[in-house]
Simulated assay, not measured.
Amino acid sequence: MTMSGTRLPQPCYLDLTQAREVLAEMGVELNERQMKRAADKDAHGRRKLPFFVDPIEGRLKIEKGTLVKIYRELQIEAENKYRRN
C-alpha cells in the first residue's frame, strides 16, 4: 500500500510474443522479426522499446502498461501536432 492507503496496480510483464499480441489488439500488426528488432539493442546499446532481460528466465520482457502508454503518448503527440497546423 502507498501512504494514502491505496494499492498500486500490479505490473504485468510480457514476453515478445505477448507484447506482439497486445499491440495486435490495438491494431498494430507486427511480425515476429519486427517485434524482435524493436526489442534488440541497436549499435548504441538502446532498444526501440524498453524491454529488459528477466533475471530469472533470461528472456526479454516489457511491462504491459508501459507498452500501451508509449503508443498512447505517441498518438496524443501526433494529434497535437496536427491541431497546430
Rank of each mutant, 00 (worst) to 15 (best):
P9K: 09
P9T: 11
R37N: 08
F52G: 01
K64V: 03
L30E: 01
L8Q: 14
L8I: 14
R46D: 02
Y13D: 04
N85G: 14
E57T: 14
R33Q: 12
A43W: 06
E77Q: 14
P11V: 05
K64Q: 13
D42A: 08
M35G: 02
A43V: 10
K36W: 05
G58L: 06
L30Y: 09
R59W: 05
T2A: 06
R47T: 03
E21P: 00
R47A: 00
Q34R: 05
P55K: 11
D42T: 04
H44P: 00
Q18I: 07
K48H: 12
R83Q: 14
A39T: 02
Q18N: 05
P50N: 07
L16K: 03
I76P: 01
E77D: 14
K81Q: 15
V22A: 04
R83G: 03
P11S: 08
V68K: 07
Q18C: 07
N85V: 09
L23E: 08
P9C: 01
C12L: 12
A39I: 01
V22F: 06
G58Y: 03
K41R: 15
M1C: 05
K69M: 13
L74V: 06
R33T: 12
R20C: 03
V68H: 03
S4R: 07
R59N: 08
R7K: 15
L8A: 13
L74C: 12
G5V: 08
S4A: 11
Q75D: 11
L49W: 08
T17V: 12
G65W: 00
A19L: 01
A78F: 14
I62C: 01
D15N: 15
E21I: 05
L49T: 06
T2D: 04
E73A: 07
R20T: 02
Q34A: 06
D42S: 05
E29K: 13
A39N: 02
R20I: 01
